[in-house]
């Protein structure tokens, strides 16, 4: 997948489109269904941050090939108010489900790499990467799908 997918984000309905595109791209690139779900869930969080904190922006998804590894990169960009203290937001090692700050924290756990670049008044860019092939649990689940023909049964 060398082409780039761009999804404008202006409302919460656009978030559904973005995470569907992300899932499809991940599956095309050879990710397991579980890893594709990780990608879609992370996109859901950062797209929500655009609509809630910045109003509008866009999500860009493309395939990655670096140092012999294949993967996918998701870039979320907006020109909203920005984040005053990115380090403080990212330092959060524990976030309660009820509290603030769980979105980026969750995205970091679901993806392999995440980088947040932001200046107050100049918007925010979140770059998240995930690499193919580290997903043991996903492979197990995919192997066990009832729709898959099982040898000998």
């Amino acid at each position: 997948m060398s082409e780039e997918i761009r999804v404008p984000i202006a409302s919460d309905a656009d978030t559904i489109v973005a995470r569907q595109r992300g899932r499809e791209a991940a599956l095309r690139l050879g990710f397991s269904r579980t890893d594709a779900t990780f990608v879609a869930t992370a996109i859901s969080e950062i797209a929500r941050n655009i609509t809630v904190h910045a109003g509008q922006g866009e999500i860009i998804i493309r395939g990655l090939s670096e140092e012999g590894r294949d993967g996918l990169v998701v870039i979320a960009r907006d020109e909203g108010p920005g984040i005053r203290d990115v380090a403080a937001v990212m330092r959060q090692e524990y976030a309660s489900e009820a509290g603030l700050g769980i979105g980026l924290w969750g995205a970091r756990r679901l993806m392999d790499e995440i980088e947040v670049a932001s200046q107050p008044g100049e918007g925010t860019t979140v770059t998240m990467k995930k690499w193919c092939g580290f997903d043991e649990v996903g492979r197990l689940l995919d192997d066990r799908r009832p729709s898959d023909p099982t040898p000998g049964s």
């Binding site: 269904r33 579980t34 594709a36 779900t37 990780f38 869930t41 976030a95 489900e97 009820a98 769980i102 924290w105 969750g106 756990r109 679901l110 649990v137 996903g138 689940l141």
Partner: peptide, 17 residues
């Protein structure tokens, strides 16, 4: 809850309190 969704939720730390 779909199996792959359950795995994602548990990695995320979403426990459906």
């Amino acid at each position: 809850i779909r199996p792959e969704v359950a795995v994602a939720m548990s990695h995320f730390g979403l426990g459906l309190d």
